[in-house]
Design a protein around this nucleic acid. Structure first.
Lengths: 211, 211
DNA sequence: CCCGGAACTTGACAGTTGTCAAGGAAAAAA
DNA sequence: TTTTTTCCTTGACAACTGTCAAGTTCCGGG
């Protein structure tokens, strides 16, 4: 009897896990669809109906899987993070010289700026929203910290390959690169063709002086 | 007859100028009122009616003086600029040593972060909006350039007082300080008491290394 | 096969939005 | 004063918003 009960309980628990997994998988599907529209229109102009229309889902589904709009967008932000934070890790892991690391980093940087401009402007948009909407802050601050760590890994490795140590704090380094990227992104979106090469030049010049 | 016509034309032109001045003055009054609500709620959550309710005006006036919502907000941004860009000029003009400049700069920086957090989060919000809304780009890029020049004036003076030259480009310097400020602002708004002192420490440490 | 619940659709709701037009008040011109 | 122009208020409009509840479809367990 006890065994049976345990068996039933186990099966039930397993079923619940499966259900939860399915539930979460669907949430991520929906979040990914939402990110498309958010990246296109920005937070201010994006409505749930617009998201639904630009996707294969109806607007009701979003309310089945998310308690409200903020919940959906928080999920989007968290999902975005996972993709973003490991972008340069391969370059860091495989580079065997300062030059190799520099060129690998710059190549990815340029590709990101050109091919994923929409996702990144959304990131800056949501980070600004976090200054108004407390519900976003926890996730945004966490992502910011992850990005800072990502930059720090690059800088540390770069310094290591030159037998040095980074010359400034993780916070300052991240501020520098993030500021440069943000500025270049805006110029790029404004149609300035020099934005990308100028960013690359600037970073190329800066790397040896900060690490 | 010719004299009369000229006189009449002159008088008419003068009247038109007066009318324009009054018109522009009113626009700025309205923009200033709008900035209050925008700073409180952010771009996404601010409606014309909300702006009107938080001010002494009715919502119709805004449509009398502005062609549409974007026109109003562009005017707000432009007006904001004028206030912002000269913030540190007095310190730069009066400081007679590196220490004096440093302390004056840091004092103003801390005061800005604490007392004008709302206006500055609005600036970051609108700069992000410019990545989506082309109508904002021209003004935003122009302000960004003015801010870069403002930082450059500080750095140049700081370097000059030490008999040196700034060690990096205006763009990189602005990116660095802007990035640090943005990050500190977010932390400050999130209730992190260490945000302000940490920003000051970081800037104090950084200034001698970049100039 | 059937049935119960999960997954999803649809339509409606109350409230808000930007915009505009008709009209009144106030000021300037005559 | 009267007339005309400027300035502003008010109310209405259609469209859109987030939310929800009633109903439908689908699927797995019994």
């Amino acid at each position: 009897m006890a065994r049976q009960a345990t068996g039933a309980a186990k099966r039930e628990a397993a079923a619940e896990i499966v259900r939860d997994d399915k539930f979460n998988a669907r949430r991520i599907e929906l979040a990914e669809a939402a990110l498309e529209t958010l990246g296109e229109l920005g937070f201010a102009r994006t409505s749930l109906r617009e998201i639904a229309q630009n996707s294969a889902f109806t607007h009701g589904v979003f309310h089945y899987y998310f308690s409200d709009k903020l919940d959906l967008i928080c999920c989007c932000v968290r999902h975005y993070k996972a993709k973003c934070v490991t972008r340069y890790d391969e370059v860091v892991a495989t580079a065997t010289s300062r030059d190799e690391l520099t060129e690998g980093f710059l190549a990815k940087l340029a590709a990101t700026l050109q091919n994923e401009a929409r996702m990144h402007r959304l990131w800056y948009d949501l980070r600004s929203q976090a200054m108004f909407e407390a519900a976003f802050r926890k996730d945004v601050l966490e992502i910011d910290k992850s990005l800072e760590a990502m930059i720090w890994r690059i800088a540390s490795r770069y310094a290591e390959l030159g037998g040095k140590r980074p010359a400034s704090s993780p916070g300052a380094l991240y501020a520098l690169f993030d500021g440069l990227f943000q500025s270049a992104l805006l110029k790029h979106l404004a149609g300035d063709k020099r934005a990308v090469p100028e960013l690359l030049d600037e970073v190329r010049r800066l790397l040896p002086t900060v690490c």
